[in-house]
Design a protein around this nucleic acid. Structure first.
Lengths: 354, 354
DNA sequence: TAAGATATGCTCGATTGGAGCATAAAATAT
DNA sequence: ATATTTTATGCTCCAATCGAGCATATCTTA
């Protein structure tokens, strides 16, 4: 809930009433950067492509592939993105969608820093992790490397109860409840909603909210790096995931949340799959992304019933048991129903407390 | 489906492998503009705030409120937006969310035009249309002023069968089916999906897709203005909604689509309502946005059952019949369920042909 | 050849949500 | 006043959806 209200009132020149867009360029030249969160699933593990920031060899951190947007060279943002992603990593992106534009990174600059402002536009791309796609730079790293609290594949991750919950509660208690306007939700409530504390349900889509809460509370490394006061109030902090350059972890969190949401109402899983696959492989891929809460028989029924797949006629043997039929994505669904996706129900509250 | 693949391959300097974001600023200084699609519902009519572009008095067109983003003055995009929206229109925005960043507007420039590139970041804001909010500039105009084909309140709008369908079919027939790679969906299929032709269901969220299809087909005024070839192949075109400056109609279309989608899974309707309201007023507001496909009794049951509202104890008389109970939004739901919204089912195919 | 593993079909029951009937309580017409 | 109209609101019925489990098929492996 971005409810920040700016109290400032600047003088109103006549000109501000004119909707001439050319004004903007004169007033605030900034650089446009494109960040790509390139997502795949490799061996039932959800991964993202990371590169190493070499800006400072000593303190090299992970980063998302990044490139400038040059409007003279590329007509569209997405075109520019595809071009440098290919140059930089060797990947030809298939599916790509815009995520969010981040510009409020003043907090990342040292006071007095005069470096130019950069607006970065985050993109989500889905691809297959197979080596056949000619990756030349960067490495696939598990999502959960950066966000261990998101990994519910073996039940509720320990880090939540052990490291996160007590500190967030302490952080919440530390506050006078200032203006409810600026902070529409109290800290304790936000912590409860985000991390499913006290019996509240876990919402796998709130990836960004969770990361930002940890940032605000000063728990993730980026908070300390950025000089957040809240980060100075802790001692002996354990590791809350691997940090990334500037705000790349925010962008990747946005990408993960979007992927988890979108997979449910658009047939985007198939961007992550090879041409032919078994239904169980498909299920494993969905579970890698959402968490393992799927009933096998029902998953089959839903996917087949929605007309999302069709059998190729072949079977895949060596599955360890009865050979599985191979299926392919039925592209025609796109011409039939308006919005099919892999509908999956909410997990039956595997939350322990409830 | 933005599947455009850039075939270009530019030289790969060493530096492009470095993820230093500062590069961007040096390479492509552009202006950042913020566009606000400010949405409200007035007298059961969904409206957006429009200002008049005075750039050229002779050919004044409607525009969305627009302002530059100056990173030196504002720390966040949203903060900057709120500031100039207030200065320009007198409105204090409540709810606001980022929509999309548009940068590919080379097509809007005359060949050889050297004017600086502007990236514009679109925002959606929801507010109440009441005069008490001190509007000082701009006018509320109905959505359907700009997109008459979106107005299904009295059934399928005539303009679809009379003006749109035949021309889109002609436009589709005019084509050799070039590469299926660049055009993942054939023109005819896109037309059918977007406008619910030939018995296909109407998807009220596809507002942007519909507008962009009409643009591509050269039917909306902006296409002619931008010198689109497809626009030159028509004669005696009727009016396909009122045009707007540059790509503001795209932005507003995005806003409308997002509003229609979001109202279903987040309690955002209440941003459009006064503090107290009757359930019927709430229903009318939802219907203004989505179209009138709601069963009154069920709507009540769903809204009350979801715990979205609570009675104030008062009633509103002078409703023309039995006085209606007044309700208010139960803000506590935000602390309970993860994602409540005004769940409404798909319209029972009010499509005529099926 | 038996045991184990995976694939796949089918049924049952709870929940959800669409549709309509019936009644309550006001405004308005007669 | 009384009847009629209009809106509000409670309740029931029914179809579709979906979670859950049983049963069976067909392979691999010991």
């Amino acid at each position: 809930m971005n409810m920040e209200l700016s109290g400032r009132r600047k003088p109103t020149p006549e000109k501000s009433h004119r909707a001439s867009e050319a004004d903007a360029a004169e007033q605030s030249p900034v650089g446009i950067g494109l960040n790509a969160a390139i997502v795949a699933v490799a061996d039932d593990e959800p991964v993202a492509l990371a590169v190493r920031s070499e800006a400072d060899a000593a303190s090299a951190t992970d980063a998302l592939p990044f490139g400038p947007f040059n409007p003279r060279e590329h007509r569209t943002l997405e075109g520019g993105l595809r071009a440098w992603v290919r140059d930089q990593t060797g990947l030809d992106l298939g599916y790509a969608e815009q995520l969010y534009t981040f510009a409020d990174r003043g907090r990342h600059l040292e006071p007095g820093d005069q470096s130019p402002h950069v607006v970065s536009i985050g993109y989500l791309a889905l691809t297959q992790a197979g080596a056949q796609h000619g990756l030349t730079n960067g490495v696939w790293r598990s999502w959960y490397h950066y966000y261990p609290w998101e990994d519910w594949r073996k039940g509720r991750p320990e880090i939540i109860a052990r490291d996160i919950e007590p500190r967030l509660k302490a952080w919440a208690a530390r506050t006078v409840t200032v203006s409810a306007v600026q902070n529409p939700l109290a800290r304790a409530d936000r912590a409860r909603m985000c991390f499913g504390l006290d019996g509240t349900a876990w919402d796998e889509e709130k990836v960004l909210d969770r990361y930002e809460l940890l940032y605000e509370a000063g728990l993730v490394d980026e908070a300390k790096r950025d000089g957040r006061v809240s980060a100075r109030e802790w001692s002996d902090l354990p590791k809350f995931g691997v940090p990334m350059q500037t705000d790349h972890r925010r962008i990747l969190a946005t990408a993960i949340g979007r992927t988890r949401a979108k997979i449910k109402y658009r047939p985007v899983v198939f961007e992550l799959m090879p041409d032919e696959f078994t239904l169980y492989e498909l299920q494993k891929t969905v579970e890698a992304i959402l968490g393992p809460h799927l009933h096998k028989q029902n998953f089959r029924r839903l996917v087949e019933g929605a007309g999302l797949v069709e059998p190729t006629g072949d079977v895949k043997t060596r599955t360890g048991g009865r050979p599985a039929k191979l299926f392919r994505f039925r592209r025609e669904v796109l011409l039939e129903r308006p919005a099919p996706g892999v509908r999956v129900s909410a997990p039956p509250s595997r939350n322990g407390t409830n």
